[in-house]
Design a protein around this nucleic acid. Structure first.
Lengths: 214, 214
DNA sequence: GTCTATATTCTGATAGAC
DNA sequence: GTCTATCAGAATATAGAC
């Protein structure tokens, strides 16, 4: 076991490497994240990085995990809103706010292939906790009897995730085609999700779902 | 102007190059698309490709444009359904079906940075036509008086796009975390979008939108 | 039009001196 | 622990012969 000061110094090096890596991804994108660039920014030789991380993938994974913890922190703050409906608005804003403020990290976690499969597919605690915050709002609505009969809170949480991810990711890649702001897009989408867009049909609710599930 | 047979042969070469490029992307992913690999598959030297395409980006752009035309074709078929509500279900299935059957092309068009900005941001006719098919369904609902008062068909079309893209893209990157099938996810989401999930509130509809727009 | 050969530049990763 | 030097290979793109 290394002595306390040595262990601390080693952790410092690790943290410095990750800090610079995060900055490179933020400023130049994920594909600019090379061992040489990280090393130069952190004041090391490229070879020295391999004393602290097994390889480039390990650095990318650490970045993604850190990003997921940031997302969890942002969502946790929003989840403090008591009323579940208002909370969903706050959660949606926090989610797309994270994607907008750190788009390359959002890409890395949710739009790159390989990361979500390995980090989330394993047992990423932060990711599971983040999703639980979304699910909790729908569970609260369910317990309060505010959901229509037959609505499944867990399935609705997935729909909510799809909605905020769709907003965040389309805004990142197709912003030229998506002129409304994230706020306007989310306001329209959440209103539709909660209250519906169709006039009530006296002969029973419309169900494209039936035809989809056939 | 080249003679007819020569022009045809030149177009053949172009088509063969694109065919092989498409196959490589489909089977090995977009990052495996290198000039060397394309050339080998098409039976050319790498240098010969530069007689038919300015550079690698031009090949990628041609692939994306072709993919967008395929998506438009799939959506056009689904758009033949007369009833607008049933049509939305068909369009959603066609959209995610395209993403599932050709995931790497879907990535290239809608999840990679650079393509949508250049191809869609310009004046991609197929892309605009594809979106118009989605918007048309909501316009039909609007004209038939089946939308609630104050609902904007154009904004709802964006919401619909967000939903189907969210479903398609999350399924591509986070399938381990999204156990339900695309069909089940879409059925839940479309039912929510059209009919809402909350019990009607006698004091007026719930509006997280107001708090979002603040 | 197509080839071979090559220039140039980048990448991740390792060996071995200190 | 950190360095220099290097390996082994990949990439795009071009020059010039045929």
């Amino acid at each position: 076991m290394p002595s306390a000061p040595r262990a601390r110094r080693k952790e410092d090096a690790r943290a410095r490497i990750l800090d610079e890596a995060r900055r490179i991804v933020l400023e130049q994108g994920f594909e600019a994240l090379t061992m040489r660039r990280i090393a130069e920014a952190a004041g090391y030789s490229a070879a020295a990085l391999y004393l602290h991380f097994a390889n480039r993938d390990a650095i990318a994974r650490a970045l993604g995990e850190g990003g997921m913890r940031s997302l969890l922190a942002a969502l946790t703050e929003a989840a403090a809103v008591p009323d579940p409906v208002a909370r969903l608005g706050a959660l949606a804003l926090a989610y797309v706010g994270f994607a907008r403020s750190d788009p390359e990290t959002y890409r890395l976690i949710f739009m790159e292939q390989g990361f979500a499969a390995s980090a989330l597919g394993g047992k990423d605690e932060a990711g599971a906790a983040a999703f639980q915050l979304l699910a909790g709002a729908f569970q609260d609505l369910h317990r309060a009897g505010r959901l229509k009969p037959g609505q499944d809170p867990a399935a609705l949480a997935l729909t909510f995730w799809i909605l905020v991810h769709g907003t965040a990711s389309l805004k990142l890649t197709c912003s030229a085609f998506l002129s409304p702001s994230e706020e306007d897009l989310l306001a329209t989408a959440l209103d539709a999700l909660l209250n519906g867009v169709l006039e009530p049909d006296p002969t029973g609710p419309n169900s494209p779902g039936r035809s989809i599930r056939r």
